[in-house]
Write a protein that binds this DNA or RNA. Sequence first.
DNA 1: GATTAACATCGAAACGTTTCGAACAGGCAT
DNA 2: ATGCCTGTTCGAAACGTTTCGATGTTAATC
Lengths: 335, 335
Amino acid sequence: MVTIRDVANRAGVAISTASYALNNDPRVSEETRRKVLKVVEEMNYRPNAIARSLKRKKSETIGLFLNDFGGPFFSSVIQGVEEVVSSNGYNLVACSTYGGNHNTTTNRFLQEKQLDAAIILGPNIPDELIVQVASKDFPVVVMDRELKAEHVHSVLVDNEQGAYTATRHLINLGHRKIAYLSGPVNSYNNQKRLVGFKRALEEADIAFQSAINVQGHFTEHGGYQVMKSLLMSKNVPDAIFSANDEMAIGAIQALTEAGIRVPQDVAIVGFDDIRLSSYIRPALSTIGHPKQEWGTVATHVVFQTLQDPSEQSRSIMLDTELIIRDSCGAALQST
Amino acid sequence: MVTIRDVANRAGVAISTASYALNNDPRVSEETRRKVLKVVEEMNYRPNAIARSLKRKKSETIGLFLNDFGGPFFSSVIQGVEEVVSSNGYNLVACSTYGGNHNTTTNRFLQEKQLDAAIILGPNIPDELIVQVASKDFPVVVMDRELKAEHVHSVLVDNEQGAYTATRHLINLGHRKIAYLSGPVNSYNNQKRLVGFKRALEEADIAFQSAINVQGHFTEHGGYQVMKSLLMSKNVPDAIFSANDEMAIGAIQALTEAGIRVPQDVAIVGFDDIRLSSYIRPALSTIGHPKQEWGTVATHVVFQTLQDPSEQSRSIMLDTELIIRDSCGAALQST
DNA sequence: GATTAACATCGAAACGTTTCGAACAGGCAT
DNA sequence: ATGCCTGTTCGAAACGTTTCGATGTTAATC
């Protein structure tokens, strides 16, 4: 491995001079700089980023922690993050947090100071770990929870408002018996969406029926299963608000198989606006949110804090949008 | 920041002893080890991974280079990679290679020895860079090209055979005028798929018509556009082999809009078996390949080479599978 | 011709670890 | 007493950079 010492020797200068030359320090003369750069070229020298990070106490790398690379809209979020990170001349590493507390990658990157900042979209990282690692020169942005702590910022989708809008929409279409197709009960997103759902019901004087509040684990298969059992119990609602699109798609499948028409017999609205939603039949009405922007905003917060570490903790909420397609029946009524 | 020196001081031992204690070296007595670990706990000490990497010349991290996190099946590949990496106690970082040669992340991680190995699925990383960085203690696995060089291994999908099977299938169904819906001409995947396509035609004594060899950039929109213009030119084929599913989906959209029935008027087969393919109507017949396994195999090769650096360069080819749904018309004929 | 300033270069310390070789203490056999 | 293990601990050098403070040169000023 060729080091800066080799370069310095060959160029006939001190190590420090070589280093200055490489870092465009104005002290070094144009002549020496050229000499050094020529040798660098000849020897194909590459600075060792690890040694540099050790000395500078900066890695110019920010970490994005995801619990699941396979998720349906994470790719959009990553693209947003990537865009801002690289436009700032920083590097991005994406780390999987799969595997919970014993995950070595998470602990290693988060606790062992290999990064300059972290963006978190992995609910299985505990709050305590986050507040522990966040510090003046290690800002953290969370996208999957509210967490009020020093040097921790949050960028969130307005789950509650979105769920409220979706439910409200179903109520306006004349539905009264509306089921909530729930994600994992301890999920932050699910909790907020449930709150919005309940608020809309309450406003319309509809009682919340826990019998038709069923849990589908945020997966297509879960949605399918749960819908199946709801059908068995003969407890079929007029309408369904699904806490995400995946489950809604599974539910539609189950309904269709049972000969129940969507939206004529049961109307359904989802949440997330994943790509698949506009392709299935009937096309899924849903609550959309700006996935890529979500990533860019979070990343901007990171860089602002990096530039001005005295920055206050911020909390940003992104708006959602009702997307009407076929599964809610609104298009049908209006014609 | 609390360092090992602080720990050593507080515990009343030498730095080296503290280090040995932390690394379970048998030299240190049980008593001292406990004393050190207690102090570690008290002070909440975390070793600095950067300093360790510098000294050990190992980062226990492997890098996965992707040109596009948003791709439709990359998430499956990543999951496969992640699984093997973490089961070996290593860390995974995923780096975007978006932006071509000037991409700093790529250069930095690849050239500046922050990693122990690399897996590459980003065609915009030039061959020269790969052979330059591959070395005895830095194995590289490519998944997006053939590249014969020392310390470079390849794990590939059998594009040619897959394309051959798909085309052959269309021919067997009685089609003679078959269009090739092409990806970027310089793409390795596209080239191989084209070869397989041509081989099938040749075998059946069908001339390759360059007029219906059209380029759709591997995107849905590209497939849609290209199909539109093919329809304008009145040069409509009996059947289409699309070099990937995305383009096939766009093409079906264009055909449907023009009132042309799939598969009755035009049969179509894609490549990749992305998730969407089984949801669209008509469901897309395609060539499937084991995406997650692709990742796990590549990663196994990495670890084998890491364990035995004298390992020969390997080249592994994964089989594909014809998946018959509705768009090719086979299901229709058989009933 | 002495004084100063500006410029270019250098040596050495530091970043936080790991690890080599030496040192020390105690126990045992000579 | 001497020598030699064995078990434990230690000091110091290294890893490849960056950066502080010092040093030497040269040219400009009085």
